[in-house]
Each structure stands twice: as C-alpha cells, then as structure tokens.
Nucleic acid binder design. Structure first.
Lengths: 200, 200
DNA sequence: GAAGTTAAGTGGTCAGACCAGTAACGGCCA
DNA sequence: TGGCCGTTACTGGTCTGACCACTTAACTTC
C-alpha cells in the first residue's frame, strides 16, 4: 500500500497537467474547485498542493482572478531560504568570502567569453557595484552562475553596501577591453578584496 | 490595508515560534490543532503554512505522532527544484561548468586551511567522488560554500555519475598533504576537468 | 454611448466531521 | 513478577460546506 499522501499525489498530478497542456507563463490554471472535482480530491488537498507549487515559484495565485503560471526565474523561494540561513556572524563571513571568490571566477570567465556587444553593455552600466558586476556575470553566459551570484548579492545587500571610486570601473573596463584576465583579477584584488578584508 | 494572507502570516509566526523556543532537530512542535488555537487561525491555514515549512526542509510530519524539527541540511526541496530547473541541455552544461569551477576553488581554499585532523578525515574517506570531495569542501571551513556545493552535487547526481581511478585519490591526498595548491589543482584539471570536457 | 449596478466566479478562510495511524496506560494471564 | 493485549486519547490527513473579499463581465439605466 503506497498510502501516499493525497496532497503530494495531487501536487504531481497538477504538475503533469501543466506539462501536458504545455502551459506557458501567464496562462491560467483551472480553478481550485474544478481541480478538486477533476482529480476527485478535496479542495483543501488541492490548496496544499498549490502552496507547494507557489513556493517553488511555478504558479501565482490572484484572489478573485485565478491561478496563473509564473514567469520562470522569479525566486521568492531563494529569499526565504536566505532568511533561514543567514543568521550568525560566521555566516556573514562565509557569505563575503564566497561572494568574492565567485566574482573573481566570473571575472576570469567573462574575459574569456566577452563579446564586443557585451563589453559595450558593461561599459554603459552605471557605476554601481552590483549593477556593474551583474553585467560581468551575465557576460559569462552561464545562467546558473548568474543565479548563484544574484542570490549571494541579495543576501549581501542586507549586510553591507560597497562603494568604489570611479577609477575602479574605468580600470576594469580597459582591462576587460584587453581581455586581460590577469589585469582584471589584479584590479579586483586591489580594490575589492583588500577593502573587504580590511573591514572584516 | 495589507490584508496579508493568513497562511503566510502563520508561516512566519511559526517560524518565529521555532526560533524563540530554540527548537532543535528532533524536537516536537505543538499539534496542528493547538497551533491553530494559539494563533487564532483555522487549522487549514496552519496546515498550508506547515506545508511550506516542510517543503523548505525545516520540519517533518509523522501521522499519528506529530510534527518534528528536521535535521538541518536535508533538502528534498533541492531535489524538487532540480526536476523543475534542470531540463535543457544548456542548463546541464552550466551546471557542470559551475560545479567544476567551485570545486577547483574549494581545493585551493582547502590547501590553505587544511588542519592535520581534517587531512586525516579526508584520507579516510571512501574512494567515491562525492564523498571525497564533500570532505574537501568541508575542509574549507566555509559552510555556505558547502551548502552550494551540496546543492550542485545533488543536481549533478541526477545527470551524471563520475568514477575516477584510485590513482586520483592517492595523488590528491599526497598533494593535500604537501599543501600544494598548484599540484592539487593540476591533478584536478588532469583527471576531472579533462574527463568532463571530453564527455561533453 | 457611457456610467453605474448586478451576478457569477475565484481564491482565502474557517469550522466541524471523520479516517487512520501512534503511543501509553492499565488490566489480564502465565 | 514479567510479558501480552486491548482500550483510549491524541496526532496528522482528508473531505465537506459554508462564508468572505475580490475581480470580471454582462446587464441595466440614463
């Protein structure tokens, strides 16, 4: 006897239903009552399943309107996870270290893969650390890495604000222009890592 | 009027309750009926909030027994996310690249910070890639980095199984013993990165 | 034709009922 | 005494039906 819990079963059934119907972001799901009716379960079970899908960022519910597919990539889930993880001083230290390490990697990757178009995009970025660096990470053409960085940056902004002189941005831009991995890394270490290690 | 949804409000209240009571893994939460009574909400709202906490891997419910705090680090959430996120080939490529980059960093960090005790712990590890490397990442003494690696590894295992000859583990161990960052990196690139880039 | 009104449908919430497990208590028998 | 076995009270799991708050669209009215 599997005696699987109904709301879990329902979760997967709805998930399958979404796939088979090929629902796209913005599309509407059947109403809770209809789902309950169609899947032959109680409405409360449907709701518990929908909560899970919502937390996963797959759907969005609007009171009075219905339940809709959500644009992929939104991550209130991540925000939530953060508030659970990020509590002590040790966690903050780890966060800073991890963020710095990953940024240095991204810088190197970006140097290897930078297209002229993306270079210009970076150059046009405001002189704000997170905006500038987001474009650098985007230039790595690795979406997963971007996601990780965005998460780290989200957390980071709750803890710290980093402002750098405009020399940093200018020097970095010329280094990227030359695709000089060593130079970019050196600048990063000089401005960012040194500053962070001092304050810590 | 915020008219915040009750189940979300309840979610945070339970979360606060857990923190304030300092509940540890294995500890029991009040029953659903008592929570509903104490927080003056319906039981269904409590249940929807509990489903979220369960999905986050914070609690575990056992029919007939109650609701319990879960040992930290278990994350069926991650498995779930994986099945949603990890669908295309591009995602897989990103995953592999990211995992390799982070592992190489961890290797370097570990070299710098490796204590004799942890070295022995690594040496005693089975010759399984993930077990071995988990101990390496643990040796970095950066818990966040460990979490990230665990997530990546979870995803990775759904896609690929990596087996290496025992020479790899032996050579790596001697490199770590010497705390030679360059040697460890070289071995890693030789065995792991080459293999992965070939198969890809 | 435009503005206001109404009705139907939707998610959000609650209360109450019942089912299905668990654990602990107490009484029974060997 | 020591081990077995119901009984019982409690737990999570599920369903139902009832409201509420809100949106939309159709309908009425001017």
């Amino acid at each position: 006897m599997t005696t699987s819990k109904v709301y879990i079963e329902t979760f997967w059934q709805i998930h399958r239903m979404i796939e088979e119907a090929g629902l796209q972001p913005g599309d509407r799901l059947p109403s809770e009552r209809e789902l309950a009716d169609r899947l032959r379960v109680g409405r409360s079970s449907v709701r518990e399943a929908l909560r899970a899908l919502e937390l996963l960022g797959l759907i969005e519910t609007r009171r009075g309107e219905g339940t809709f597919m959500k644009p992929f990539g939104d991550h209130q889930l991540i925000q939530l996870l953060g508030s659970f993880i990020l509590q002590g001083n040790r966690e903050k230290r780890d966060l800073i270290e991890t963020k710095l390490l990953i940024e240095r990697i991204c810088l190197q990757l970006a140097c290897e893969r930078l297209t002229d178009q993306k270079l210009e995009h970076i150059a046009r970025a405001e002189h704000t650390y997170d905006l500038f660096f987001q474009r650098v990470v985007e230039a790595t053409d690795n979406y997963l890495l971007l996601r990780i960085w965005l998460v780290l940056n989200d957390f980071f902004e709750h803890v710290y604000t980093l402002t750098l002189p405009s020399e940093f941005y200018e020097q970095m831009r010329t280094a990227l222009q030359k695709r000089s991995c060593e130079e970019a890394t050196a600048i990063y270490e000089q401005y960012v890592m040194q500053k962070m290690s001092k304050e810590n």
